[in-house]
Amino acid sequence: MSKRMWQGVIPALTTPFAEDGQVDHAFLAKHAQWQVEAGCIGVVPLGSLGESATLTFDEKVAIVRTLVKALGDTPVIPGIAALSTDEAVELARAVEAEGARGLMILPVYAYSTDWKEMSAHFRAVANAARLPILLYNNPVAYKTDFSAAQIVELANEFPQIEAVKESSGDIRRLAEIQELSGDRLVLMTGIDDAIVEGLAMGVTGWIAGQVNAYPHESVALFERARDGGYDAVKDLYSWFLPLLRLDTVPKFVQLIKLTQQCVDWGNERVRAPRLPVEGAEREAALGVIEHANKNRPTL
Rank of each mutant, 00 (worst) to 15 (best):
N137V: 09
K165T: 01
A94S: 07
A163R: 01
D170T: 05
L187Y: 02
I207C: 14
T85C: 05
N138Q: 09
A70T: 13
T66W: 12
L67I: 12
E90F: 03
R93T: 03
I105Q: 00
G198T: 11
P75S: 01
T113P: 14
D170H: 09
R65Q: 13
K165I: 02
A141Q: 14
A200Y: 15
S167T: 08
F122H: 14
E176D: 15
I105S: 00
N127C: 13
V108M: 15
K69M: 10
T144P: 11
R101S: 12
F122Q: 10
V196E: 08
D193M: 01
F158V: 08
E162V: 10
V76I: 03
R123A: 05
M104T: 04
S147H: 13
F122Y: 15
Q178H: 10
S84T: 15
V164S: 01
I77D: 00
V68K: 15
S147A: 12
T204L: 08
G202C: 02
D145H: 15
D73W: 08
Y136V: 06
E179D: 14
L91G: 00
I151H: 04
Y136P: 06
V125I: 05
I177M: 03
Q210A: 06
A129M: 12
S112W: 15
G79N: 01
E176A: 13
A100T: 05
D86N: 11
M188G: 01
E176S: 13
L187I: 02
Y111M: 15
G182V: 04
P132T: 06
A97P: 05
G202N: 04
V152A: 05
L67N: 12
L174P: 11
P75V: 01
F122P: 10
V196G: 05
P132F: 03
D183H: 15
A97M: 04
L131K: 06
T74H: 12
G202A: 06
A92P: 14
G99M: 03
Q160N: 13
A94I: 02
L83C: 13
V108N: 11
L67D: 08
R65C: 09
I171A: 10
G202S: 05
A110H: 10
E162D: 10
S112Q: 15
Y142W: 12
I191G: 01
G190I: 02
I207Y: 14
D73Q: 14
A194N: 07
S181P: 15
T144D: 09
D86M: 04
A208C: 09
D86T: 12
L134W: 03
L103N: 00
G182Y: 07
E90T: 08
E153L: 06
V140C: 02
D86Y: 09
W115K: 12
I77N: 00
T189A: 04
S147Y: 13
E96T: 14
F146D: 03
T189W: 04
A92M: 08
E197P: 01
D73I: 04
D192G: 05
I161W: 04
L71W: 15
L71I: 08
I195R: 02
A155V: 10
G190R: 00
Q150P: 14
A92K: 07
T66N: 15
L187V: 06
A194C: 05
A163Y: 07
M118K: 13
D114R: 12
G190P: 09
K143A: 09
L174Y: 11
A92I: 11
S147R: 15
G209Y: 07
A126S: 06
M201L: 13
D192H: 09
I191P: 02
K116H: 13
